[in-house]
Write a protein that binds this DNA or RNA. Structure first.
Length: 845
RNA sequence: GCGGGCGUGGCGGAAUGGUAGACGCCGGGGACUUAAAAUCCCCUGAGCUUUGCUCGUGCGGGUUCGAGUCCCGCCGCCCGUACCA
């Protein structure tokens, strides 16, 4: 027995060094062992590690350590998603260089991660802003260009007319530029695109094979890709021209009462000689480009003098220019069916257009009025000539057939998914490796001239892209004709950087992006862990990039991530007071506040502050808890344990001081228990405690199962139970053995404590991190007795103990013998008896 | 607006359609101590006429011998919405 305390301030660093010195977590691709690639979404080096990172990487760490103990050769790497806007913002605000700022952040964050004791292979670390990395990315981009998957076209951006610069959606606040405050305009630029739509069907089909992805993410991706069957057809126009539209609801064609075209549709542009039309088109250019902004903006239309002739009825439908129709989607024109599309309904109501019913749930109610909104639901076609009485599906097919035989339209599959615009008019990103030559056009940079590196001498005093105004960087000779030409000054979307980094972790040759043979050994990633906010874009782009590389023969694997896990956020309550003068809340950090069980007061003045909702940690709400301070106080293992406890990993985890203190106490409680491993003898002469041994084996099996399912909160609860049972058990060889195995069992979660205990108390030899997972005896997993619930009409009336596997007859007899049940029955006749073996008996009267 | 998710004691949560509240936190009571810290033990969904009974998993319906779990309709919150990462 000992009364010493576990001291993480000494032990943590000792074992972190021991693992590094032993190369414990360096992945060996030549190993004969089966491979396991565990990956968490790599961080953006924003400055400091936050609790969300700690939670994410702790989960992956437990898996990595567990897999190693199960005999796998584990690859668990870490790097930095280092390009992006925050570095440029820091450059503007603090006058630092984006690269210097980023490098300093990486150094700081790496040290923080190392203090948490993550089982990472740091030999494979890289940052996406390393010229070596982005040079290989440029080469891959050129490969995709050669494969016909890269092209240029005009596309809309947010334009700040005062700062004369392109704005990210994030930089548009309420339709205004974040710095200038000027109303944002839509502007067209020639930009680079990746043909992700070529893979729309593959990406959709592939979702079916991703059995270990959350159903919700697969659904979200499916909806995002948005495959739909519809009709593309043309209206004859009153001015002699034709108007092509696309509709997913050709069955409602008899309900069409207008057509609408985009502001930049050629027909609208053709009418722009009229000042009224020009003014309306200008008005449509106002506002931001996000889907949410477009969908919620007021629907505006301009009625042109042109009309469109309905292909069946011959009716002349008015043609509107409308702000909600986008040139980028479909044909840039739609037919408006107000009765069965909510957006059309609102538009028709506003501009006093007919709202016709052509689908009715009840065919007898063919002329029922609408109740203030469109009816998009299923039903039978009405008021539609030859379509009347058909189902929606049949009518769709019929209209498509008639359009095709009549030669005025054809059935088409369209995708909601659009091609991926990768151009960014910014400095801190991967330069797009192309050169613009007046004579030769757009010319790829020859691969032997890669990487195209970013110039260091740039300034951020004025808005805009520093690459554009750099005195020399963009001026180069054309690789084809040798004449003076200009470099492309757009850089790649940072999602490109994160679309193949997992391949670079797996293999890092100097002369190529990756070695296919090495990649084949590790890929696909066995467990990929990160935030749900990446459910669509990042994950879809990474899937696309992987397929595109497979398509060009670079790799064999089609899907990069065999299993995906999306973890919840770390949240914290907020403390605030309303500033009387300004009427806005002022937030206080947890360190400024004294929190008691029934409220909180500000330390500075002792007066109360309001305890607000538990929300995601953010600087603006001042509800951030710095991991470093917590680790310094309680040690890495207490923080890791907290991250895994209580909340299921896919849900939000509310941070609490009481919680981390409880975890720190549990670390010491385990330490005391480990100190008792020698007590009670270790030989066969000491008494065998079967109940405890059974509990041990059951726990080892259950914890393994829980870790494999990433149900860390349940594994934690199991360990609490086992610890309680061991503490209470009388001294025995079984108990000593359980304590030794407990140290191994908790080691994926609390690795420093486990190593220190083994070394201090002689609980085993070698590093725990390199030990095997405890063996389980299947015979000890089953109990001899079970508790049977006795119900009357589904209500619990009694419980009895019965041997496991008892017959239905025995259980029924046991139930009927219960006095509580008999009182409940009160002499009523038994109509039915339901027996669920080993669980319950339900008497129905 | 559209797509997706979530909702269970004071709090985080557990529960193959089968005993709702495991496990932890908070709180209360006690032991130890001169005292405190630490530690240990007990209690802890609400109510009632307390061998036990009734109610109870966001709200309203439904299916079932039995619903937190399945179905329908709502409400609230969260994530995404293509240039935040």
């Amino acid at each position: 027995m000992t009364d010493t305390r576990f001291d993480p301030s000494v032990a943590d660093e000792r074992w972190q060094r021991a693992w590094t010195d032993a190369g414990t977590f360096t992945a060996d691709s030549a190993s004969e062992k089966p491979k396991s690639y565990i990956l968490e979404m790599f961080p953006y080096p924003s400055g400091r590690i936050h609790m969300g990172h700690v939670r994410n990487y702790t989960m992956g760490d437990v898996l990595a350590r567990y897999q190693k103990m199960r005999g796998f050769e584990v690859l668990h790497p870490m790097g930095w998603d280092a390009f992006g806007m925050p570095a440029e913002n820091a450059a503007m605000e603090k006058g630092v260089h984006p690269g210097g700022w980023t490098r300093a952040n990486i150094a700081q964050m790496k040290a923080q991660l190392q203090r948490i004791g993550f089982a990472l292979d740091w030999t494979r670390e890289f940052a996406t802003c390393d010229p070596e990395y982005y040079g290989h990315e440029q080469a891959l981009f050129l490969d995709l260009y050669e494969a016909g998957l890269v092209y240029r076209k005009e596309s809309t951006v947010n334009w700040d007319p005062v700062d004369m610069t392109v704005l990210a959606n994030e930089q548009v606040i309420d339709g205004k530029g974040w710095r200038s405050g000027a109303e944002v305009e839509k502007r067209k630029l020639n930009q680079w695109f990746l043909k992700i739509t070529d893979f729309a069907d593959d990406l959709l089909e592939g979702l079916g094979s991703l059995e270990d992805w959350p159903e919700k993410v697969r659904l979200m991706q499916e909806n995002w890709i948005g495959k739909s069957q519809g009709l593309e057809f043309s209206f004859d126009l009153s001015d002699g021209g034709r108007l092509a539209v696309y509709s997913t609801r050709p069955d409602t064609i008899f309900g069409a009462s207008f057509c609408a075209i985009a502001a930049d549709h050629p027909i609208a542009q053709g009418l722009a000689g009229d000042p009224e039309v020009a003014a309306f088109i200008d008005q449509c250019k106002k506002g931001a480009t996000t889907a949410a902004a477009l969908e919620t903006a007021e629907k505006l239309g301009y009625r042109t003098p042109i009309t469109a002739k309905h292909p069946f009825t011959g009716a002349e439908l008015p043609v509107f220019i409308a702000n909600f129709v986008l040139m980028e989607y479909g044909t840039g024109a739609v037919m408006g069916v107000p009765g069965h599309d909510q957006r059309d309904f609102e538009f028709a109501s506003k501009y006093d257009l007919p709202i016709l019913r052509v689908v009715s749930a009840d065919p007898a109610q063919a002329d029922a009025p609408f109740k203030g909104e469109a009816e998009a639901g299923d039903g039978v076609i009405v008021n539609s000539d030859f379509l009347n009485g058909m189902t929606v599906e049949a009518a769709k097919a019929e209209v498509i057939t008639r359009a095709e035989s009549g030669g005025w339209g054809e059935g088409r599959t369209v995708w909601r998914l659009r091609d991926w615009g990768v151009s960014r008019q910014r400095y801190w990103g991967t330069p797009i490796p192309f050169i613009h030559c007046d004579a030769c056009g757009v010319v790829p940079v020859p691969k032997d001239q890669l990487p195209v590196t970013l110039p260091e001498d740039v300034s951020f005093d004025i808005p805009g892209n520093p690459l554009e105004r750099h005195p020399t960087w963009k001026h180069v000779d054309c690789p084809q004709c040798g004449k003076a030409a200009r470099r492309e000054t757009d850089t790649l979307d940072t999602f490109v950087d994160s679309s193949w980094y997992f391949l670079r972790f797996a293999s890092q040759p100097a002369d190529r992006p990756f070695d296919p043979e090495e990649v084949a050994k590790w890929m696909p990633v066995q467990h990929y862990i990160g935030g749900i906010e990446h459910a669509i874009l990042h994950l879809l782009y990474a899937r696309f990039w992987t397929r595109a590389l497979a398509h060009t023969g670079k790799i064999a694997v089609q899907e990069p991530f065999a299993a995906l896990f999306t973890q919840g956020m770390v949240t914290h309550e907020t403390f605030s007071r309303i500033d009387e003068a300004r009427g806005v809340p002022v937030f206080f950090g947890p360190e400024e506040v004294d929190r008691t069980s029934d409220g909180a007061t500000l330390l500075a003045d002792g007066a109360p502050v309001e305890v607000g909702r538990v929300i995601k940690m953010s600087k603006s709400k001042k509800n951030v808890v710095d991991p470093d301070a917590i680790i310094a106080r309680h040690g890495a293992d207490a923080v890791r344990w907290f991250m895994l406890s209580d909340s299921p990993p896919e849900r939000d985890l509310p941070w609490s001081d009481a919680g981390i203190e409880g975890c720190a106490r549990f670390v010491q409680r385990l330490w005391r228990l480990f100190g008792q491993a020698g007590a009670g003898g270790v030989g066969a002469d000491a008494e065998y405690d079967k109940a405890l041994d059974r509990k041990l084996h059951q726990t080892v099996a259950a914890v393994a199962e829980d870790i494999e399912a990433l149900s860390f909160n349940k594994a934690v609860a199991r360990i609490y139970e086992l610890v309680g049972a061991v503490e209470k058990a009388p001294l025995s060889a079984t108990r000593s053995d359980a304590i030794r195995k407990l140290a191994v069992l908790v080691s994926p979660m609390m690795p420093h404590l486990a190593e220190e205990a083994r070394a201090t108390y002689g609980l085993g030899t070698g590093l725990v991190a390199e030990s095997g997972w405890p063996e389980v005896d299947p015979a000890l997993l089953v109990d001899d007795e079970v508790t049977i619930a006795i119900q009357h009409m589904g209500k619990l009336r009694d419980t009895v103990t019965a041997p496991k596997g008892a017959s239905k007859e025995d259980l029924e007899a046991l139930a009927l013998a219960s006095a509580n049940l008999q009182r409940s029955l009160d002499g009523a006749a038994v109509r039915k008896v339901i027996v669920v073996p080993d669980r319950l008996v339900n008497i129905v009267t």
